[in-house]
Design a binder for these strands. Structure first.
Length: 263
DNA sequence: ATGCCTAACACCGTTAGA
């Protein structure tokens, strides 16, 4: 089962590129971030025509997440628990039953768009760190359930210096500040596996700024991640970044990242 | 030290992204 995450930077502006990628990469499940659309504005029919079930959690103007799956969703939850006053659409999770011999295996897929947090310090940075605390709390519950689960999305965290072409340029940035990286480590150390870090030694950048020719110089950062519960990590077979999506004429500034689980 | 791009909203610029 192939599970992918893709920050599309506007699903309406990115529709042809999204559809081409879905056809070529053919993920079984895809988590989308920054759909920048309300639920009613999501181009649902075009995606359904490719054989996907669609679940959205959108808002007006910015943020917004969605889950796509070739198999129907058994259960969907919208919004990260822990703060009733949080109106930002950054979390959606669902369960799909993997195809296979005998009884199918249930896989929980959580799609997340972690706050950017700039400028730091400041209220946006505090929101980011608070959101990461709530993420850890939800991760603890998921780990306790001992499920096959994947937490995939735009984490807006550069975990380590080797995850940036120019780490010194990011030292003061909310994506790389010590507080953000410490919160990332607290999350992973609950018992999750960073799929890329587990399988690969090469950089695995997933974001290149539109500005200053970052893509042409491969001046990227690795901020889109898939974290796996032990039950999922046991089944991890492969992972990748679809760099071809970033090389297109009208790309998102992120490339899709995916994991393949043996199910 | 700042802008460099891009998308959305709603205007003919501002906010947000990272």
């Amino acid at each position: 089962m192939k599970i992918a995450t893709f920050n599309v930077n506007g699903v309406k502006a990115r529709l042809p590129e999204l559809l081409d990628w879905l056809r070529e990469a053919a993920p079984d499940v895809a988590a989308l971030q920054e759909i920048k659309s309300v639920d009613e504005g999501f181009p649902r029919e075009a995606v359904e025509d490719l054989g996907y079930h669609v679940e959205t959690h959108g808002q007006k103007g910015f943020n917004g997440v969605a889950l796509l799956s070739k198999r129907p969703f058994e259960e969907v939850r919208r919004g990260l628990p822990g703060d009733e006053s949080d109106a930002q659409a950054r979390w959606i999770e669902g369960v799909v039953i993997a195809e296979g011999e005998g009884e199918g295996k249930a896989v929980r897929v959580c799609g997340l768009y972690l706050p950017n947090g700039n400028p730091a310090p400041g209220p946006k940075f505090e929101y980011k760190l608070g959101w990461m605390d709530r993420l850890a709390a939800r991760a603890r519950e998921i780990l306790a359930a001992e499920e096959i689960a994947v937490l995939a999305g735009d984490y807006n965290v550069i975990p380590q210096p080797e995850d940036a072409k120019r780490p010194d340029a990011w030292r003061e940035d909310a994506l790389f500040r010590p507080e953000s990286r410490a919160a990332w480590r607290r999350l992973v150390h609950l018992g999750l596996t960073d799929a890329w870090r587990a399988l690969r030694a090469d950089p695995g950048y997933t974001f290149w700024d539109y500005q200053a020719g970052a893509w042409g110089r491969d001046d990227g950062i690795r901020i889109d991640h898939a974290l796996l519960t032990p039950q999922a990590a046991d089944r991890l077979r492969d992972c990748g970044v679809d760099r071809a999506a970033r090389a297109r004429e009208k790309p998102s500034d992120h490339a899709p990242m995916w994991v393949e689980l043996a199910l």
